[in-house]
Amino acid sequence: MHKASSVRVALAVLTACAFVLLFAASASADTGKFHSADSSVNSSGALVVSFDERGLGNGNIDYTLTADATAVYACINGGGNHPQAANKEAVEGQVSTGGSFASKNGRVVASLTTGPLQDPSFTCPSGQRRVLASVSYTNIVLTDTTNNVSTTVADASRTFFQV
């Protein structure tokens, strides 16, 4: 083999290696990583997850939010009290939502809201109204479906009326 052809082969191998390393670096740069994700329950009893994901490329990023939910509904009288009776009902199930957000400078800072579970179909006695007494969310998972990255989020709960 001539010296010139050996140099060409070596250059071709180096060029291929550089291309592979460059492609791997750019692919990992667009993976995304959740910097933070916090949960809370708003005044309507809905789960709100606020998050900050970084290391993203440009474009829209799609998300899903899922959680196990428990909502307790009760009957409240005109004085704002829960009569000592068995007129309350707990509902359990899963809540979920999704959203799409534009990445700005490789970052998405946003929030998603879901829930609460719909109130049960039981009725309250005359002079009382049905209210959401408390709600809790567990097994909360936020997923960046564009980059297949998930994070678990702390449980959240709120009590509106003691029952």
Rank of each mutant, 00 (worst) to 15 (best):
L56H: 07
S150R: 14
N77F: 11
A154D: 14
M1F: 09
A67C: 11
S157C: 00
S157H: 10
T114E: 12
T152K: 11
K88S: 09
G80Q: 10
A156P: 04
D155C: 02
V163D: 06
N81I: 01
F161M: 03
H2L: 05
I76Y: 04
A29W: 06
I76N: 00
T64Y: 01
T146R: 05
A86T: 06
L112P: 10
V153F: 11
C17A: 15
H35K: 14
T97W: 01
V91S: 04
A71F: 06
V135I: 13
A24L: 10
V72Y: 01
A37Q: 03
Y63F: 15
N58M: 02
T151A: 13
S96E: 13
T15S: 14
G80F: 09
A16H: 04
N148T: 08
V163E: 04
G45Y: 13
V108A: 00
S40R: 15
A4W: 02
E92T: 14
E92P: 00
T143W: 00
D68P: 00
N139V: 01
T123R: 13
L65S: 09
T113K: 14
S100A: 15
A69S: 15
A24M: 04
A24Q: 09
V141W: 00
V13S: 08
R129S: 14
T146Q: 12
Q94K: 14
A24I: 05
A18Q: 08
A16R: 08
G106P: 10
A90H: 01
A29V: 04
S136T: 07
H2S: 15
A18H: 02
D68H: 09
S39P: 05
V131G: 00
V48N: 12
A67R: 10
